[in-house]
Design a protein around this nucleic acid. Structure first.
Lengths: 223, 223
DNA sequence: ATTTAATGATAGTAATACTATTATTTAATA
DNA sequence: TATTAAATAATAGTATTACTATCATTAAAT
């Protein structure tokens, strides 16, 4: 079975749905490569236009600005992750196993198994780690938030919170713990590579460090 | 007793020490007000120059760019916080009390008591919450990190980690837990105000929410 | 009184973040 | 198949940003 997954991203994020045209899909795919390569601050529509051999004007017909394009990419990612959480966890009976599976998903690239993915998994993962907070840590947050553009993040968080509550129904902060898991997975991965003194990584345990730390933390909290 | 506190900020961060001139001190003080007002993305040297009635050229003689200025502000803040951690905790014998005091510091504005402060505490606090991650979540992190410009953050983190280890010597991830405390204090404060669905804030417990959540989390982890 | 350092005033440049206009190509439909 | 509509390319242009450079003026230090 080979299948392609697409998600209906909130249409307030784009001016013209990039899913509906070859060039639109190119914009998203190549933006992921270019944001990874340059970092979000150094990325712009001019450079992206050159890369996909189109013009800035065309890009602006799809997205109001680069912030919206990043938001689109992250919405797609969060939706996908929620799908994976539901899909991969359905056969696990034990809530503990489910939580472990979630931590694995949060600390690794998107799995190969899950259908044909048009985007570069590694790059997408790095963008989520390094750039995702930039979509909400802005002065205009309240304005932006009005059109439910963070719904996929909230849904993902809610889904994780549900499982936390199944595991320990008495725990009082399931949603905050869920968002903390997500955010912590990002900054501990970032720190362990770039500012390792802010962590307890060891050379030998490098790749699994964040997962190990988060698992230990989560079950200490919920026990 | 009335005293003024200054810190020796790493001189690789500035081109000319802003502490040593009236205009330099104005730059930092007014930058805090303006970054708070506009958000870091909308803040620039032109607007700051107008505000303090000087020219862009003068600002560029102190700081290479606005990123460095933000880094300066945060270095100052982290140094101050480390000082406060040491100062306020010295009379507490109990490690548990110390950890509680740390969480209080991480989730509230800088205290009034601690000497004359030239900067707006509320604004500084909000900048730390909303903008601090932008100084390290950049492509150039390795280059920037070379001159020890994150030392105050690492020191603060290390100081907290020490106390964690005193409280529970067997706990294996004191530094990661310390950086998680710091980072979580930021995003939970931000979320509880701007994206409350990612948290478990209640209207009545609003102001103390993050402190309560973090304290609960920390002692569950360390017990 | 003289030198040095800091700032102000002014100008200018390359890049960014857009908007607008018109021509051309492609797709949809009659 | 011709007609219409929609999408894109090509080109131009503007305001703002992020700087750098120069030189005159003022303040501080010796």
């Amino acid at each position: 079975m080979d299948f392609q997954i697409t998600f209906t991203v909130n249409d307030k994020i784009f001016l013209k749905n990039p899913e509906n045209s070859v060039i639109g899909r190119q914009i998203v795919k190549q933006a992921i490569d270019l944001i990874y390569e340059l970092g979000f601050e150094n990325f712009n529509f001019k450079k992206l236009a050159v890369k996909i051999e189109t013009t800035e004007a065309t890009l602006y017909r799809y997205f109001e600005n680069k912030h919206r394009l990043l938001l689109y990419i992250l919405n797609w990612y969060w939706s996908y992750l929620e799908f994976l959480v539901m899909f991969q966890l359905q056969n696990l009976k034990d809530a503990k196993e489910k939580l472990k599976a979630i931590i694995h998903l949060l600390t690794h690239e998107l799995p190969e198994s899950s259908g044909r993915l048009d985007y570069n998994r590694k790059f997408l993962n790095q963008i989520v780690i390094s750039e995702s907070s930039k979509v909400y840590l802005v002065k205009e947050i309240n304005e932006i938030n009005k059109n439910q553009v963070f719904k996929p993040y909230k849904d993902l968080c809610g889904r994780i919170a549900e499982i936390i509550s199944i595991y320990n129904p008495k725990y009082k902060y399931p949603k905050s713990l869920a968002s903390t898991l997500i955010e912590t997975s990002h900054h501990q991965q970032f720190f362990s590579i770039n500012l390792p003194k802010l962590t307890d990584v060891q050379v030998k345990t490098k790749t699994e460090f964040t997962a190990t730390f988060l698992e230990d933390l989560l079950f200490r909290v919920l026990e």
